[in-house]
Simulated scan of single mutants.
Amino acid sequence: MADSAFPSSPSVWCPHVTVACVVADGDRFLMVEEEVNGRLAYNQPAGHLDDKESLASAAVRETLEETGWTVELEHLIGIHQWRSTEHGDGVVRFTFAARALGHDPKRPLDTGILRALWLTRDEIVALGDRLRSPLVLMSIDAWLAGQRLPLTALHSLLAEDRYP
């Protein structure tokens, strides 16, 4: 008999799990300019969680792949749920605050990413509907308002995260 707490039916809803990083340098924030479905869009460094990957590792990896910046996570800013206007699916996004450690300008960026750039909040607001989602500004504003959750609020039992 199947355990009802873990249904195996294909009708079980599974949202897209994504991660993002708010990386600040003074009054500027690290952003990516990307092509999405034939249009130019702006986002924080962000992407999908891979199988067998911790949320924290995914956030650091996505930032490096999309911007060439190596970052260190400092805080969890928030967890946001919304329905994407691009594909119509549900998304659960874990947004982190990160500190930039170093940049490799020669590193190739992910497919679809045109460039990484630093913008002020006012410049980001001015992008209007060119923002990839409402989560972009929501995350920056939460960070500016001082929303900080400890990274210890997240736990991973994956082998990559175990310490000897």
Score class of each variant (00 low, 15 high):
S11F: 13
M138L: 11
P10L: 07
P150C: 06
A59S: 08
P15R: 06
V60W: 13
D122Y: 07
R130I: 02
V17P: 04
V23M: 02
H16F: 13
E160A: 12
L101V: 12
K52S: 13
D110C: 11
P164N: 08
G102R: 12
C14Q: 15
D89H: 14
A41V: 12
L40S: 02
E86K: 12
M138V: 08
L119Q: 08
D104K: 07
D122R: 13
F29Y: 15
V36I: 10
M138R: 15
D27G: 00
C21V: 04
P164H: 09
R148G: 06
L131N: 05
P15W: 09
L114Y: 00
H155W: 12
A58S: 11
W82N: 06
D51W: 10
Y42F: 15
D122V: 04
R61F: 07
G146S: 00
R115Q: 10
L154F: 08
P7R: 03
A145N: 07
D141K: 02
D51A: 14
E65A: 03
D129V: 00
E62Q: 05
M31P: 06
R28G: 09
R93Y: 05
P10D: 05
S54G: 10
P45V: 01
T63P: 04
W118V: 01
T70C: 14
E74K: 11
S54C: 08
F6N: 12
G146T: 04
C21I: 01
L40G: 00
K52F: 13
H103L: 03
A24D: 11
Q44Y: 12
A56Y: 07
A58C: 11
A142P: 01
F6R: 13
S57G: 10
F96E: 00
V22F: 10
A24E: 13
S9P: 05
C14F: 14
H103V: 05
L30E: 00
S4T: 12
G102N: 10
V71Q: 09
E72Y: 02
E86I: 13
A46T: 05
E74I: 02
H80N: 09
R83Q: 11
H103I: 05
D141G: 02
G68Y: 04
E53I: 02
D25R: 12
D27E: 15
E35N: 08
G26F: 08
M1R: 07
L151V: 07
R115H: 05
R130P: 06
A159Q: 11
E62R: 04
I77E: 09
A142N: 01
L137D: 06
H103D: 09
H155R: 14
S57K: 09
V71C: 02
L144G: 04
T111N: 15
G47F: 00
M31Q: 01
P105F: 09
A2H: 03
A5G: 03
Y163G: 03
T85H: 14
Q81Y: 11
S8H: 13
L131D: 04
V92D: 04
D110P: 03
G112V: 01
L64T: 07
P105N: 04
V32C: 10
P45C: 06
R121Q: 14
G90R: 11
S139A: 10
L157F: 14
M1P: 01
R130K: 14
A41Y: 12
K106D: 15
I77M: 06
D89E: 12
T67S: 10
A142S: 09
T67E: 06
N43M: 03
E65P: 07
D110R: 15
D51Q: 11
S8Q: 14
V60P: 10
C21T: 10
S156P: 03
T70N: 14
D104T: 01
L49Q: 01
